[in-house]
Nucleic acid binder design. Structure first.
Ligand SMILES: [Zn+2]
Ligand SMILES: [Zn+2]
Ligand SMILES: [Zn+2]
Ligand SMILES: [Zn+2]
Lengths: 136, 136
DNA sequence: TACACAATGTTATAATATAACAATATTTAA
DNA sequence: TTAAATATTGTTATATTATAACATTGTGTA
């Protein structure tokens, strides 16, 4: 098997994982699972479960993130996100554009935030809602 | 119609809205829509749509919040939440206990946070994940 | 009363996600 | 190398979450 021409980013991805990730990366915006399914059927993926299994692994790896309020998946826009554990997004309520926020100030604040029991959390998901530049 | 013995909190709630809110408040933990439905059938609610319509209104009013990562609904634990626009929760990944976070420091930080375009957001949802006191 | 509007009731269906089981491929280690 | 362990795939069926569409009833107000 030839490995040399595979990009480093996808080195440990299986066939279906690559197909699904490629599709999501091409879209630049969040994609829903069944929309992914529809769009990769020409590549041989036939069933929802094949998509969902790939999505699960890609989320685990931090290659994609789930936008929980939209039930949709977006490629990680932040090359430093090795693990899907601490994510922040802005979501335009008009056009649904989603942008991953990469702010060390924000991530430091949230990682050091203590609740009233003194508990800290290294894992979180934050979704901001508003209007994007274009829609304002 | 007697209004005097209704709590102020539920003054403008319709019949189904009251039934659904009472159920969620009794549970103290997030409830899923179909679990609510099952539990309120003795009160005359028969169809999913009756539950979802009540949930929509209650979320709008800020009486309950949706825990997006769990597709579940929890009563507002923070009497000051008049509108469902800026919420934060901690979620135990072991026992699924959810607590609404009410920290003026956190809410001030998030409300004043500016993304790289200088955009501020008054509406957000933050979900922290970890282990609760009991599960640690 | 008459009108507008909110809420309800009901059936059907859409959209999202997982269970269960069999087969194949890949990695690990004796 | 070979066998076991692990990961991935394929497939069908089904579970779970949520909304569409339409008719009816209740409520507030002019
Ligand atoms: Zn990321
Ligand atoms: Zn926009
Ligand atoms: Zn609240
Ligand atoms: Zn716990």
């Amino acid at each position: 098997m030839v490995k040399s021409n595979m990009s480093q980013k996808q080195e440990h991805l299986s066939k279906n994982q690559k197909i699904v990730l490629d599709m999501i990366e091409k879209s630049n915006q969040p994609m829903k699972a069944y929309s992914i399914l529809f769009n990769v059927q020409k590549k041989g993926i036939k069933a929802p479960l094949q998509v969902y299994r790939a999505l699960d692994k890609l989320v685990e790896m931090g290659k994609i993130h789930k936008i929980e309020s939209r039930n949709a998946f977006i490629a990680c826009q932040n090359s430093s996100c090795q693990v899907a554990k601490a994510t922040a997004f802005s979501i335009c309520e008009m056009c649904e554009k989603v942008t991953e926020i990469s702010s060390s100030g924000l991530s430091k604040y949230l990682a050091s935030f203590k609740d009233k029991d003194g508990m800290k959390y290294s894992k979180y998901n934050l979704e901001f809602f508003g209007l994007c530049k274009k829609c304002r």
